[in-house]
Structures are given as structure tokens and as C-alpha cells.
């Protein structure tokens, strides 16, 4: 079976620093894939490469068989890759609903002229975008705050909204960059349940960067370990937990603890 996402010897340099070097990654459709590694290992850079925010210096990124390296971020998003950011990047001065709508809009097709002249076809489409976005917010239990400014939400809800926004793209692949950052263990457990629900309900393949080992081990079917931009291990949670190199590089204390 061809993987949903396949990175082939992808390299990205910043000046002299090789943030990602010859990285390989295969994500199977339907799986939940974890990416772990110490800070500065190049995990976020990997996400930025996949979503077109950076272009790789070398290598191919294949999504559903197409090499998307060099595509612009919005083209990649429209193809079905959604993401969240390590430092939340919502449109703070827009309402919660509008944050969702801006992603929901990728599937709208009405022309520029019909928008400028507010023609009926365009009006119908906008109406659908409002309703669809509301529905999504309702599923996330956030419809009551649809009219609030996104920047005014508490931190936890902002993280949740970022996921909702990414899902409004109806993506087949969802990249989550440290979704549990800043959460205590009770909250992390709830996040784990929430992500399970997302996986089922939206029928989406998840890739998550995480430091919480319980979350990663509990949720992921497959794990890739990065260190200094290099893939040092790749396998099932059980294989990773037993891997000497990983324990040396990163897991050491946490596995013993």
C-alpha cells in the first residue's frame, strides 16, 4: 500500500545549520503517527516543510502520490493537509466563527465577480459556509462563543479552536505540533480522548509532535524519532521503547521513571 505521506531524503538548511537532513518518513493512511525528539531536533521544521512554509533544499515530499515539494502553503492545504502551530497562530482579531470560516472557504468555488456583485450563487455559497462552520463549532462544543474574538479565548480553547480550524479544511492528514504543551496530566488524558474522537469522527490521519510520552505511546501506531535533523529510529511504540539509541538520545530518564 502506498503511504499517504512519504518524505524521501528531505533536507533543509538554515545558513550553516542543517535543521533536517535526509529525513525519511512514511505515514500510512488511517494511522496515528508520532514524531518525537529533543528540542531543536527539527520536528517543527519537518512540519513546515510538509505544509510548504519552507521549501526543501533536497528531497521529495509525496502526498497521495504527488510530489508537493515547492507547492505554496495554500495549495497544499487545499490538497488536504491541515495543521496546528507550536505557538498558537489564530487570527486574534477575527471572531471564532471567522477563524473557522477562513479555512472552510477552500471548498467554495464562486467567482470573483459573483462576490463583488453579491450575486445569488455567491450568497448561497456564503450561507453554506456559515452553516458548515457553525456545525463544526457545535461538534467542538464551541458554538456558544462563535461571535467572540479568537484572541480573547482562554489558552486551552485557543488550542482547540486551532484544531477545529484545521479540520474545517476537511483534511485527510492533520499535523499537530505539540498539542499537549502546557497541559497537566489530567488535561493531557482528556486531550488523548479528544484526539481519539477527532480521529474517528473526522476520519483523518494524525501526525503529532509531542513530548508527553504517555500520550504518544497511548495514541500512536507508529513513531519516528529525530535527533539533530536525522531520523534515528522508526517503528512501533514497543520497538521505540526498546531502542538503545533512542533511550540514549532522549528517552533515558522518562522510560526509567
Amino acid at each position: 500500500m502506498t503511504p499517504l505521506l512519504q518524505l524521501d531524503a528531505v533536507t533543509k538548511r538554515f545558513g550553516g545549520l542543517c535543521a533536517v537532513s535526509a529525513a525519511r518518513l512514511e505515514v500510512q493512511a488511517g494511522h496515528t503517527h508520532g514524531i518525537i525528539g529533543p528540542n531543536g531536533a527539527g520536528k517543527t521544521t519537518l512540519f513546515n516543510l510538509i505544509t510548504g512554509i519552507y521549501t526543501p533544499d533536497e528531497g521529495a515530499i509525496r502526498f497521495e502520490g504527488t510530489n508537493i515539494a515547492g507547492f505554496r502553503p495554500n495549495q497544499i492545504a487545499a490538497r488536504g493537509i491541515g495543521r496546528t502551530f507550536q505557538n498558537i497562530r489564530l487570527c486574534r482579531d477575527l471572531t471564532v466563527l471567522d477563524n473557522v470560516r477562513m479555512a472552510y472557504d477552500v471548498r467554495l468555488t464562486s467567482s470573483t465577480w459573483s462576490a463583488l456583485l453579491n450575486l445569488p450563487s455567491h450568497r448561497r455559497e456564503e450561507q453554506r459556509s456559515i452553516e458548515g462552520s457553525f456545525e463544526l463549532l457545535k461538534a467542538f462544543g464551541m458554538d456558544a462563543m462563535a461571535g467572540q474574538l479568537a484572541g480573547g479565548l482562554p489558552y486551552g480553547l485557543q488550542r482547540r479552536l486551532e484544531i477545529a480550524r484545521a479540520l474545517a479544511l476537511k483534511p485527510r492528514l492533520l499535523l499537530l505540533d505539540e498539542p499537549a504543551a502546557g497541559m497537566n496530566s489530567a488535561e493531557t488524558l482528556r486531550l488523548m480522548e479528544f484526539l481519539r474522537w477527532v480521529r474517528e469522527h473526522f476520519d483523518v490521519t494524525l501526525v503529532l509532535i509531542e513530548h508527553h510520552m504517555k500520550l504518544v505511546m497511548g495514541l500512536c501506531d507508529h513513531i519516528t524519532v529525530l535527533d539533530f535533523g536525522v531520523t534515528i529510529a522508526d517503528g512501533t511504540p514497543a520497538e521505540i521503547q526498546g531502542n538503545r539509541r533512542v533511550i540514549d538520545a532522549y528517552l533515558g530518564e522518562e522510560v526509567e521513571a
Partner: peptide, 20 residues
């Protein structure tokens, strides 16, 4: 939708692009 795109650029161009 175009107007939402335009305002999203003001708020965060990079995130806007990643959201399609």
C-alpha cells in the same frame, strides 16, 4: 470569502496560507 482572506493576511499571513 475573499474579504476573509484579506483580513486573515492582516492577522497572520503565514497561518492564513497554511489554512488554504
Amino acid at each position: 470569502k475573499f474579504g476573509r482572506g484579506i483580513t486573515a493576511i492582516r492577522e497572520d499571513e503565514l497561518a492564513a496560507g497554511a489554512m488554504g
